[in-house]
Design a protein around this nucleic acid. Structure first.
Lengths: 119, 119
DNA sequence: TGAATATATGAGCAGTTATTCATATATTAT
DNA sequence: ATAATATATGAATAACTGCTCATATATTCA
């Protein structure tokens, strides 16, 4: 036969290690969910929005000005974040206030910051 | 003048809230760093690789077989993860073993899993 | 009513990313 | 030396993402 092998062996090379690993292995669906969770925090603008909302609600306008980002960009991100249940909104006249809506995420966020600080 | 205003006011709308928010605001550079940290966990394949390595080291071949992903795909991801210092590698003959190299990240990972479980 | 303001949104674009495919390198076995 | 095996990697591609630009909607104000 030709020299044709990019694939690994048919059986595991280290059965023992694989068995040990299998127990904690995450399945595809949960991996996707988990990845999506982290994805929510995987953008600088979203990270800054979250940091801005840590202690108080803010209107779109002020978030945009505070971060030095376009109103449109912020609005798009906020919509995404609302779909992900990261933030909730409250309308008062023509002003819309956004606030954090998920302590899980803000908890993860805080952990991330800790690692940044003494990592 | 024409009707031309997509921009918000020149001054903040809610000085008080903005002042409160400013104190905790993350700057662009740190936001980028933080986002990159979470980015590392923002992909299903990487998440599964991490879960596979939680309790033991594994060779590339076994990781690929265990996850049902191409050797090449795994190898590419591992390279990226090594550049990010998420994993380290050790070579023995023609076999390369990978293991987790960053408890910070695996800590974040575990937190994420917790949230999945009772979230 | 009409102008101004705050926010939302669709389309398009540019940059990024995960995977595949082909192939290279390194090590072991025959 | 030759074949087989384990891993790495470059190029190409397809999908995704974040932003901009133009514009729509909603509300307030004069």
């Amino acid at each position: 036969m030709k020299t044709k092998t990019t694939e690994c062996a048919e059986n595991f090379i280290h059965e023992d290690k694989v068995r040990r690993s299998e127990k904690h292995l995450i399945d595809g669906l949960n991996a996707t969910k988990l990845a999506r969770t982290f994805q929510a925090l995987a953008d600088p603008t979203r990270v800054r929005i979250i940091s801005a909302l840590l202690k108080t609600e803010l209107c779109v306008c002020d978030i945009a000005a505070l971060l030095g980002v376009t109103q449109s960009a912020i609005s798009h991100q906020l919509r995404q974040m609302r779909d992900l249940r990261l933030v909730r909104s409250r309308k008062e006249g023509r002003i819309v206030y956004y606030a954090l809506d998920d302590e899980h995420i803000s908890d993860l966020f805080r952990r991330g910051v800790e690692h940044l600080e003494h990592g």
